[in-house]
Nucleic acid binder design. Structure first.
Lengths: 163, 163
DNA sequence: ATAGTAACTATGATAATCATAGTGACAAGA
DNA sequence: TCTTGTCACTATGATTATCATAGTTACTAT
């Protein structure tokens, strides 16, 4: 594409976020990082993105300070990618996207009886449904407070991609 | 680009949302619609996007059921775009993006003393800061409960684009 | 010596985006 | 009447991002 207008210096906060988040690949990579996938190949396989796209986006995300590259062995050199504090703080955005999709993007019964991805509040054990505060104890939800349980359909899909 | 993998039938809710939301233009148009801009030219001018991009995205968003096209006069035919219930329910996503940017994307004092965009909870009058529940009364925040006040810097920027 | 794994880079075809200009339908003013 | 202006777009051509596929580097394991 031609040079598009840069939004990183707009005063609108949504515009600034959109520069990074208005990108399919970035969103999918973030999802996988939140899911616990840290290795390049695992991310590429699960997202279905080509290696050069994954590479380019991880570099950009590293430049933005949302991920960190970490060597987990020296010979041969192997790296993994981890969310920084700034990256982990994007959880609310991804969680809001998940909530919206659970409410609007599935046919009745498409994922069995429950949601595509169930979240349990560790502190009180309640199923949080699609709310932003825990319906059991009323606390706001943060990354780390939640335990995700993919539905059978989602688990099968991910297994197929990994194999 | 070549035909990219379609995510609308993945079982992952973030993947399904990413198909629509992983796009700069869609995000900017949504922002403007939430801001109250309903007319094509106003959206094109404020986002800085070309008319064919705005046109294409509004069609896609209409197809997805997040916006509705409304004729507000017949001679000559003039339309405006409105968020549907499904569209309004994306507020949490945009609000989470705004919160993240307010926390991480500005230099100290870049927008004066406060945030780029201040939100007040209508019910209790509290400044909600960057939280997902009202710090004054504890209620979860919804679109319609909040009154947005752009900072002087943001107001000036928007005025410059409109003129 | 051969195969395998991890993390990439290179190449060429395809498709999306941008800037700019143009269209159709009408209203208002000179 | 003629010109100018507004709104909501569509058309065109240049530029650039993305995809699929293949190749590379540096090792380990058998």
């Amino acid at each position: 594409m031609p040079k598009r207008a840069d939004l990183s210096d707009t005063f609108c906060p949504v515009g600034r976020s959109a520069e990074l988040l208005g990108d399919r690949a970035v969103l999918l990579i973030l999802r996988d990082l939140f899911f616990g996938r840290r290795r390049f190949e695992a991310i590429a396989a699960n997202t279905g993105l080509g290696p050069q796209l994954v590479s380019a986006r991880l570099k950009r995300m590293e430049g933005e300070g949302v991920v960190e590259r970490h060597a987990y062995q020296d010979r041969p050199p192997r790296h993994e990618y981890r969310l920084t504090a700034k990256g982990k703080d994007l959880f609310d955005v991804l969680y809001a996207m998940r909530n919206w999709a659970e409410r609007w993007a599935y046919e009745e019964g498409e994922t069995g009886s429950g949601p595509a991805m169930r979240y349990i509040h560790r502190a009180c054990g309640a199923d949080v449904g699609t709310s932003t505060i825990c319906p059991g104890c009323g606390e706001p939800l943060r990354y780390g407070d939640l335990k995700g349980e993919p539905s059978e359909a989602l688990r099968a899909e991910q297994a197929a991609r990994a194999g």
